[in-house]
Design a protein around this nucleic acid. Structure first.
Lengths: 211, 211
DNA sequence: AATACCTTGTCACATTTATTAAAAAAGCAA
DNA sequence: TTGCTTTTTTAATAAATGTGACAAGGTATT
């Protein structure tokens, strides 16, 4: 049970959410136990990869039995960091920013959007599902009075770098970036990108080279 | 110049959109030439990796000179498949589906949303930026009369598999899936996933393990 | 035209990631 | 309890991916 995540590879980290999705689903369906073999079949991975992955975090399986689904689910939750609440702000209250604010699904997972910020006076003052759209100039004072964990960038790409720096300036260390550029920030800031167009391009490539 | 993409690795494919982003930007700024070294510095990759990647597609650089930016841009465009137009439909006209329809940026790249489909009678009949929201029951006849290349799934996860099968049934071979599950489809169907929650979970993991 | 300087393409090597195989521990049934 | 099966662990091997080095062939300058 001792966690020895001395060095967890990138590849494993990218698979963690997928494990969590499948195990959560199984738990919801009342499944009590699962073997690496069975899980591998469902997920399209080899059993050995699954065992090796879980072992990075200290092996919570039992020989001759497999993995206890509720227990595994809890472990994954802790490993990923879903055993707490996160407060977030969205910068850029355009289509995407509004869609994120309108989506209530994240709240069930412990993610709360506390405010949206925009520069457009037509948007400032409005609210979405009770979440206020504030003037971006008020960000610093807002941040001083609210413990915010994550800044979400939903601006056009021209503004993204500037906004990212502003967020960091306000003390934000974790950024979820939807703008189609790679923002450059200090090393201690964690940036996770969602590059929609990149994803669409990859689809195109495969479309053309799908032999 | 001869293309010998006998075997292009996954890793290279995932980097293609990023190359395209950076080279397009440089072209827009009037840059004429770039060396692998210079590009590597900008992109945070080694020069050697860039040369090797481009070589997968037949090496369009010139010794002593580097890469011609406009030419490279054109080549990347062709490689990814952005030298043509794509017609798309969105299934699920909720927050995300509407946001995609409202976003005009994709059109500049040759991606056109031709219709949205939903099951909700309150939404059916409405239109977004001139794009109609149609009843999902009319999909089959719509598809028969319109050449659609890509189906975009923006439904809740419960409906995603069903909708994916419907799309395939209508002849769609390429799916951009925003629902947080892995849809299971025939091998000849290309599926590209955008799992927002996965991305957020990865951010959380790094947040907790950012030493 | 000759020389010095760059920069690609390519290959060998290093690192990372995944798979196979063997060993140990626990369950299960008689 | 005993023996057999299941299944994880751990180690060893293989495959994929990334890096470093260098020769060949251009460019730029004088």
């Amino acid at each position: 049970m001792a966690k020895r995540r001395s060095r967890v590879s990138e590849a494993v980290i990218r698979r963690l959410p997928k494990y969590y999705r499948y195990i959560t689903e199984m738990k919801k369906n009342g499944v009590q136990r699962v073997s690496s073999n069975e899980l591998g079949q469902k997920m399209g991975l080899t059993a050995s990869q699954i065992r090796q992955d879980f072992n990075c975090f200290g092996g919570f399986g039992q020989q001759g039995y497999g993995y206890n689904v509720p227990e595994l689910c809890g472990e994954l939750k802790k490993i990923i960091g879903l055993d707490r609440q996160y407060n977030m702000v969205v910068v850029g209250a355009g289509n995407l920013g509004q869609a994120l604010a309108n989506y209530s699904g994240f709240e069930k997972e412990g993610f709360f959007i506390k405010a949206l910020f925009d520069i457009n006076p037509r948007l400032v003052g409005m609210s979405i599902r009770g979440i206020d759209i504030l003037d971006i100039d008020t960000m610093k004072s807002f941040m001083a009075n609210n413990r915010i964990d994550i800044g979400i960038i939903c601006t056009p790409k021209e503004k993204a770098q500037e906004v990212a720096e502003l967020l960091v300036d306000c003390g934000i260390k974790n950024i979820w970036n939807f703008a189609p550029i790679d923002v450059v920030l200090p090393d201690d800031v964690v940036v996770e990108n969602v590059h929609l167009s990149d994803s669409l391009y990859i689809l195109c490539y495969r479309m053309a080279n799908n032999s």
